[in-house]
């Protein structure tokens, strides 16, 4: 019983680590730009696939992480600069544009990587079995959690300890006033969108290394991402941390005790929060 619980909690933490990396970028981009990037899931999938190909070709997992995340960051940057910028402020065109991109990515990925589920091969040195509190648990999952904490900490540093971060926060609070005081909000937009893409690229490589990548993962991941940031409060980093932890455990225990409902379960806290606190746990009223 105890062992099972411990494993479930650790699984939940692993899940939460991925959830945080997924949600943090999306929530920042939404908080600042009010643009819901519906190609977030497709970015994840593509990042994972690119990582897969790099691992396949070079057997170098760290290189795959770098390649997967940087290429998605570049894609995000170019997409924002050349496309999104043209429909700024229009909810419907933004939605259509990001959905269109996600479909294009999904189909191109299907053509290149096929329909079979793929998983990135982890080198043994990154996945040593670790004995902890009487159980043995895959070491890579601890690396995952560590990376997620590291990312959270770096994001916090950037946001709260640099001038760039202050301008991002000012833009989130009131982009009009920020721009009227000489902050180049357009530049900040590009930066944040690229950062968001970078993070989801990281999530793709990490997720693809312990879950499977297959056509359809993109929509599942997009759904998760949306639930995470709606529960936490859109635009809030702390909210994303908390909601990732809640949803990670819920998914992990749900899979163990009520597998047929586990996917449904993660919507429950979101439903409750939307009913009593529509701005999310840590969100501010928009």
């Amino acid at each position: 019983m105890y062992t099972k619980f411990l494993i479930l909690i650790l699984n939940g933490l692993t899940q939460a680590a991925i959830f945080f990396v997924l949600g943090s970028g999306l929530t920042l981009a939404f908080g600042l730009m009010r643009v819901m990037n519906l190609s977030h899931g497709a970015f994840y999938l593509l990042g994972g696939y690119i990582g897969y190909s790099v691992v396949h070709a070079t057997h170098n997992w760290p290189l795959a992480l770098v390649a997967g995340s940087l290429s998605i960051a570049l894609l995000g940057f170019l997409f924002e600069r050349t496309m999104l910028v043209r429909v700024r402020g229009g909810d419907l065109p933004e939605t259509l544009l990001t959905i269109a991109l996600s479909m294009i990515i999904a189909d191109v990925s299907l053509a290149i990587w096929g329909g079979h589920p793929l998983t990135l091969n982890l080198p043994a040195y990154l996945n040593p079995p670790i004995r902890i509190l009487g159980i043995t648990y895959p070491g890579f999952r601890f690396i995952l959690m560590g990376l997620s904490v590291l990312i959270a900490f770096s994001l916090w540093l950037i946001l709260y300890r640099t001038k760039l971060g202050a301008s991002v926060r000012a833009g989130v609070d009131d982009r009009e006033t920020a721009s009227a005081l000489g902050v180049n909000v357009d530049k900040i937009y590009s930066f944040v969108f690229a950062l968001s893409a970078l993070l989801v690229g990281v999530a793709g490589v990490l997720g693809g290394s312990y879950l499977q990548l297959s056509p359809g993962s993109d929509t599942t991941i997009l759904t998760y991402s949306l639930v995470i940031i709606i529960l936490g409060g859109m635009g809030s980093l702390l909210g994303t941390v908390v909601s990732s932890l809640i949803l990670g455990q819920l998914l992990s225990f749900g899979l163990a005790y009520a597998p047929q409902y586990s996917y449904f379960l993660i919507f429950v806290p979101m439903g409750v929060v939307l009913a009593i606190r529509p701005q999310g746990l840590f969100g501010r009223q928009v």
Binding site: A166, R169, A170, V172, T177, A180, L181, G182, D186
Partner: peptide
């Protein structure tokens, strides 16, 4: 707006519109 601001025009909006997430010091350094 940001280009106009950087040409030497300062703006104090109606209702102040300070940034709730920024400290007093950050308002001035930003």
């Amino acid at each position: 707006p940001f280009a106009i601001a950087s040409m030497g025009i300062g703006y104090v909006p109606q209702g102040r519109r300070l940034f709730p997430s920024l400290s007093v010091e950050e308002h001035l350094t930003l």
